[in-house]
Amino acid sequence: MTQTDKPLDQTVTSGEADLDDLRRRLTSWLSGRPEVAGGAGGSGDSGDSGDARVTADGPGGVEVGEVTRPEASGMSNISILFDACWTSADTGERESAQLVARMCPLDDAFPVFPVYDLARQFDVMRVVGEHTDLPVPLVRWLEEDPAVLGSPFLVMDRATGVAPVDNPPYVFGGWLLEMSPEQRAELQRESVAVLAAIHGIDRPAELLPSLAPARPGEDDGLRAHVDEQREYYEWTVREGGLRIPVIEKAFAWIEANWPADPGPDVLSWGDARIGNILYEGTTPTAVLDWEMAALAPAEVDLGWFLYFHDLFQDLAVTYGFPGIPDLFDHDQVIGEYEQLTGRTVRDLPFYYAYAGLRQAVILARIHRRRIEFGEAEAPDNPDDYVLHNTMLYRLIAD
């Protein structure tokens, strides 16, 4: 496998903001919410003055505790953690919650994706929470005015649990590697059940009209999904990138191997992997990260789910580690999924290769971002912008 600088423990740069200032702004904004006694019902002012020690002397008795950042935060967004108390406008009782504000990337953060649609994420999380028993964090508020915190944001309840880490990948060490094979088998079953529950939501297109294809009259979810990925790739090229042979050959392979019958569209999680699930033991306690949700065949998620683990396992073997070879055996996962859903999984090799293509476009953009922030050098071979290019070449050759 072709490697880049420090591929297993990469530095990630995200936008910065003064946390004390964010605390003041959050207090002012929350005081203006209609759910808060005395709230004006608006988004509040910017809260650009006042002491950082916020006390319950504003409308609704709003208190916001210390604002912090999670130890690990994604590159496609900024998350901040805070506790808040307020007086309910409905009951007059004091309420409190541990919250997360998820913000759009700042303009100077070299975004990984061209669009970060918080309203769509808010709607998807709300629908999944209402129509399944999955532990999706309660989404409380959506603020689309960038003047409040400097970027649009949504606020949701904070979840507990731990996720298998990406950087360095969980196959190199940690709690999942230390589990017994029986515990990992149970975690696998629970994780596959998450996919089955998401895909079991009835009438997703009616519940989530914001996921409708961008092109009028287009009702083929797979076609729309692939076209969107190609547009994303072209955007990365226009935004300071370059054409990458392995990606373009993979797009050609996808078109040449199109499924005869892609099957019905479901609500596709999009970033379907265990790194986006929090666990307590083997039990999921939160299902996170819905920015890539779409209407697409169920196999889009299954391919991504399996490919992501295999990519990490391939990295482990490349660097002389055993990894976790007993986790996410393809036949086992397919059998468990089919038993839970009553569906027959079709054309998985196509969707598995498509997952490799999707990840290649994202990794190429991330590597370009690292170059922008001085964390890596530009490789001589364009394919080396894609960490797993050898694995992807192997897939499309087969």
Rank of each mutant, 00 (worst) to 15 (best):
D145C: 12
A101P: 06
F153I: 04
T160Q: 13
V127E: 09
P111W: 02
R120S: 14
F153V: 03
V128T: 10
A119K: 02
P137N: 05
L99G: 08
P164K: 01
F113S: 04
C104Q: 07
Y116H: 15
F122D: 03
R158M: 15
F113N: 07
S151G: 05
V136N: 05
F153K: 05
L138H: 12
L118G: 00
M156N: 03
R94L: 13
L118R: 00
E95K: 11
F110P: 00
P135I: 10
V124C: 10
P114S: 05
P152W: 06
V155M: 11
P146N: 12
V148D: 06
C104I: 01
L149W: 14
A97V: 04
L154F: 15
E143N: 14
G161C: 00
T160V: 09
W141P: 08
P137F: 06
D157F: 10
P135M: 11
G92F: 12
M156S: 14
R102F: 14
L142I: 09
D117H: 03
A159R: 11
R126S: 15
W141G: 05
S96C: 02
R158Y: 13
R102Q: 14
W141R: 07
V100E: 11
F110K: 01
D133S: 13
L106N: 02
L149N: 10
L154V: 15
R94Y: 11
A101F: 14
M125I: 04
S151D: 01
V124Y: 08
D107E: 15
P105C: 09
A163Q: 00
Q98Y: 07
P146C: 10
P164L: 05
F110Q: 08
L134P: 09
A101N: 09
P114G: 11
A119I: 01
V165S: 11
M103L: 15
L106C: 03
H131Y: 01
V136A: 01
E95I: 02
M125W: 02
T132N: 09
G92S: 06
D117L: 01
V112R: 00
V139S: 06
S151E: 07
V155F: 15
R94E: 15
R120C: 14
T132A: 05
P105K: 03
Q98P: 07
V112W: 03
L142F: 07
F153S: 05
N167T: 07
V124P: 08
D117Y: 02
V165E: 14
F153M: 05
T132L: 05
